[in-house]
Design a protein around this nucleic acid. Sequence first.
DNA 1: TAAGGGAACTAAACAGTGTTCAGTTTGTTA
DNA 2: TAACAAACTGAACACTGTTTAGTTCCCTTA
Lengths: 201, 201
Amino acid sequence: MGIVDRKDRERESMKSLMLEAAMELYLSKGIENVTIRNIADKIEFSPATIYLYFKDKDEIFFHLYNLAFGKFYQAQLRDESIVDPWERLQKSGMHYIEWALANPKLYDLMFILEIPMDVIAESSCVDIGINSYNLLKKTVAECIGRDSIKVSDPDLGAMIFWNYVHGIVSLLIKKRVLYPAEHVSRLIDAMLATFYSAMQK
Amino acid sequence: MGIVDRKDRERESMKSLMLEAAMELYLSKGIENVTIRNIADKIEFSPATIYLYFKDKDEIFFHLYNLAFGKFYQAQLRDESIVDPWERLQKSGMHYIEWALANPKLYDLMFILEIPMDVIAESSCVDIGINSYNLLKKTVAECIGRDSIKVSDPDLGAMIFWNYVHGIVSLLIKKRVLYPAEHVSRLIDAMLATFYSAMQK
DNA sequence: TAAGGGAACTAAACAGTGTTCAGTTTGTTA
DNA sequence: TAACAAACTGAACACTGTTTAGTTCCCTTA
């Protein structure tokens, strides 16, 4: 039945239309302007229609959360071409911070927004998160193999490196660092350099 | 004029009453239940009365934010009695994490909640934050003086140590760490131990 | 002590929010 | 062509933060 297929496609493209409108609103006008009525206005449908495609507003945000994770993972993949694992580990940390500061709202969506665990658990996002984490863990494991870092457990090492860059990003994004803007990039460089040299064997 | 003084006191105690009600609501029922009407119900006044004491809801939250910072600073001060600076630095990091995990909602209020910078700038909170930061910086400076850590700049060192524990806490509080609960405290210990030993000279 | 004035407080309303539901239109099937 | 189901919407509900007009009460002054 081609008609059923077409209806499925139409349904999916309608969902995408709504999610794109929601994402645009979020990125351009902030989270407080992502309202059902604003999304509906943007796509020229009535607010009630949105509820035919999504259970509630949380489900919409959860899809945005997944989209953000997908983009993040794509950015991460770019460092896979770096051959030397220690160089890859260092560069990916740098790029993690750069990506997050270039896409602060997407980062917010990924790590700072409150999202119920049950809805995370039953989602593709866990997979993306785990993929992402496994990428890092693999790099750390390679570094351990070459005896270039001061950890022996890949899981522990991955957590430590992730934690470090996440800390920097989350303090900066939430503007809890009181340094003048022009000194921030120097501060980041110094923080990374110190950490890397301390972790290097 | 004693009457003016009394009125001042009454006004202050009214504000406290409202803030306590708001804090109780926040800690027991979550941020989404801190509504003007719920606060008003709790203290048995009309919602409009609250606006005679606070400009808007943001101002109330900002006072809660300050209260949280005050409690945090009090907790931090307890480590000042530790004589050896390197021991003090390590213990205070541990205690930072313990306090944050024991008071996750207060920590949220301090570091994760969105708060406009202009309202932060004109507040006593900057002072408390800076006091807190200076405490840490002083300890780091002492460690540098004794040549016990691998940084030479107190500001950089303070940022690095703060960043590390903040990263751990923020990942844990937002439940982005996928480890089973019973392994978490071991993970934290390992993360701290590795970091401390890497930073020690 | 009486009157005036200002501070304290509130009921009711406004504009916005997420969400639901009865009812209408549209497209597909028998 | 008639029947049915899917798609869509207007209008409502219960909630939100906030404002305003109006009332009550206490303090100051004559």
